[in-house]
Design a protein around this nucleic acid. Sequence first.
DNA 1: CTGAAAGCGCTTACAG
DNA 2: CTGAAAGCGCTTACAG
Lengths: 334, 334
Amino acid sequence: MAVTMNDVARAAGVSLKTVSNVLNDYEFIRPVTKQKVLDAIAELGYEANLTARSLRSGKTRMLGLVLSDLSIPYYAELASRLMTFASARGYRVLVEQSGAEPGHELSALQGPFRQLTDGLLFTPLALDAGTIAAHQGTKPVVMLGEHIADPRFDLVTMKNAEAAAAITAHLLASGRRRIAVLGAASEDTTDSPGLRLNGYREALKTAGVEFDPALVVQCDWRRDGGASAVGSLLDDGTEFDAVFGLNDAIALGAMHELLIRGHKLPGDVAVAGFDDIDEARFASPSLTTVSPGMEEIAERSVKLLIDRIEGAEASSEGLHVEAGFELKVRESAP
Amino acid sequence: MAVTMNDVARAAGVSLKTVSNVLNDYEFIRPVTKQKVLDAIAELGYEANLTARSLRSGKTRMLGLVLSDLSIPYYAELASRLMTFASARGYRVLVEQSGAEPGHELSALQGPFRQLTDGLLFTPLALDAGTIAAHQGTKPVVMLGEHIADPRFDLVTMKNAEAAAAITAHLLASGRRRIAVLGAASEDTTDSPGLRLNGYREALKTAGVEFDPALVVQCDWRRDGGASAVGSLLDDGTEFDAVFGLNDAIALGAMHELLIRGHKLPGDVAVAGFDDIDEARFASPSLTTVSPGMEEIAERSVKLLIDRIEGAEASSEGLHVEAGFELKVRESAP
DNA sequence: CTGAAAGCGCTTACAG
DNA sequence: CTGAAAGCGCTTACAG
C-alpha cells in the first residue's frame, strides 16, 4: 500500500540500488540520475520505511535514556534537552523509567529496550559498577551523574565540588561568615551531597573561616526539607547570616520559612542554592544559585554517545567529561 | 550472531511456524511441543527481534506522545504516568516535543514519527481541528486537553468548569464573598481559562453572589503572573477575602506575594488553586486546590488508544472522556 | 495441530 | 557510476 523504493526505482527508470545510493548520500552518482530519483521521490511522496532500514542495517537511530522518573523536574528538563540535541543529529530518544529499582535498571540494560536503541544514556541509581560492566553488552553506554565514577565507563557529570566552593566563596566575599549548609547527608565524596559539602569546606578553608559542624543540617532534598531544616536552626538559636541549600528546592523552602518568620532577605540572611531550576528565577526574592551546566551535560553526552555509535570516538578507555558551571547571582545573595 | 527463531526451531526439532505459534500464544498447540520450544528458548537465551517483527506485522508496539515540552512539569508528570500505563499493556511511549509550533505538530502527525508508532496521544496546541483531520492519516489518534473539542476525534480531558465551580463553592461555603480570580483570559468556553472562569461564575450564581468583573485579573499562568496580579489588586485597593488562581502556579505566586506584604493566610485571605501539582502539598501554608484526575486521564487515554489500535473499540464516532476531579482541601483555604 | 514457502522494504557485498 | 541478487528475522496465508 505504501510507496516503496521499488516504485521509486521504476518511476525513475533506475535500479533499486541507485535509489538507495541517492537516499544514503552516496558520493559518486551522476547529477542527472540523482535528479531523476529525487523527482520520482517527490512525485510519489515516498518516505523510507524506517523499520525495514533498521532490520537490514542493524541501526535504529534511537538513543535509550534510562532515568528514575520523568516526573522529577531535573530529569524532565534533562530529557527535554537531550531530545533536542539528539534530534539535531538525526536521532530520537526513547525513555525508560527505572524507578531507581535495580531490576528495572538491569532490564533496561539488557532487555528488549536495548534492541530498540543504538546506545544508552544511563543514570545508574541502584546498580553498582560491577553489575553494569557485567551486563552492559556490546552497544555503547554513557553514564550520567556521579554515582558511578569508574574508568571502564564513559561518564558525563558536573563539577559539584568546584561549583559549591564558588558559591560559598561568593557568600564569603559578600561578608557572610556563618553559612548554614542544608541537605548534607555525609562526607562520602562519591555522591552529590558529599562532593558539594566538600566544596563548601574547601572554600571556608581558603578564606580562613573555621568550619562549624553545628551549621550543617541533614534534610531531604525538597522544599519542605529546607523549610524544616532552617526552622530547626532558628528554634535551636543557632546563629547564621547565610544559608546554602545543596539544591534549589532546599534553598527555596528555607527562604519561604525565613520570610514567614519575619526575617529580611538578604538583609538578615543571604540564601543560595544549587541547580538553577526555572523556579529560582521567578522566586521573590530571586534565588542566587549555581547553574551546573545541564545544557552542556546534555550536549556533550549526546555527542559522546553518538560518536561512539558511529565509531567517531575510538578511545578504548572510558572518557570522563565534567561540564562547566556558572554562578547566577540574584537578589537573595547579591 | 544473535540467536534466531531458526536456531530455536532446530534445537527443538520443530518448524519455524511452531516456534512462532508458541511465541504468539497460539491456542491449538500440543503441550509437549510447546514445552520443547520453551526449553529451547530458555537454553539458547533467545529473544525475539522486535524490528523484524515490526517489519512483518506492521505494528511497533509504540505509542507516540506529542506535547510541547517535557520541561513543563504538567507534561512531564503526564508523560510519566502514560508510560506506566502503556507499559502495563506491553507498549512503549515515544515522546516528540512540538514546542507548540504548528510545523512541528504537523510533522509529528504525518512524518516519520508516525511510522514508528501504532497510534498517537496528541496535545494539539497550534493546529486547528480541520488541519488535524486533513493530516491525521489512518492510524488512531487520541486528543489530550481541551483545545480541540470536535466530534471527529477521540478526546480525553478534564472537567474544567465543574471542578472550578466546586472549588469556588468551597470558598463560598467557608464564608468568603469577594473571590478574586487570577489568570482568566477570556470567556471563550473552548479553552481551560474560559471553562474555569465559567465554572466560577456558575458557582457564584448558584450561591446568589453577584459577579464583580473588578475581581477578575488576567495574567500569565505562572508563579510571577500570580504574584503581580494579586499585587495589582492590592495596589488598586480592590477588596477581596479569597483568591482563586486558575492554576497552582498562579495561586502559589499570589500566596507568596500576600505573605511578603504581611497578610495572614488564610485569616485575611483564603487561597485556592487548580492542578494539584506536587508543590501544592509542600507549600506553606499547603495549598487548597483541585486535582483534575491526571491519573485517570493517563489511564483512560492509553486504554482508549490501545483499544483503537487493537480494534477493541469499534465505535466510528469520536469518543469523549472527561476524567473526574477531586477537591484537595488544605491549609490555605480550609 | 504442524510444515514449507513467500514476503515485509530495505541495505550490502559483489560484479561489471 | 549502476545493476541483479541475497538476506536481515520475523509473520502470515496456504496446505495438509
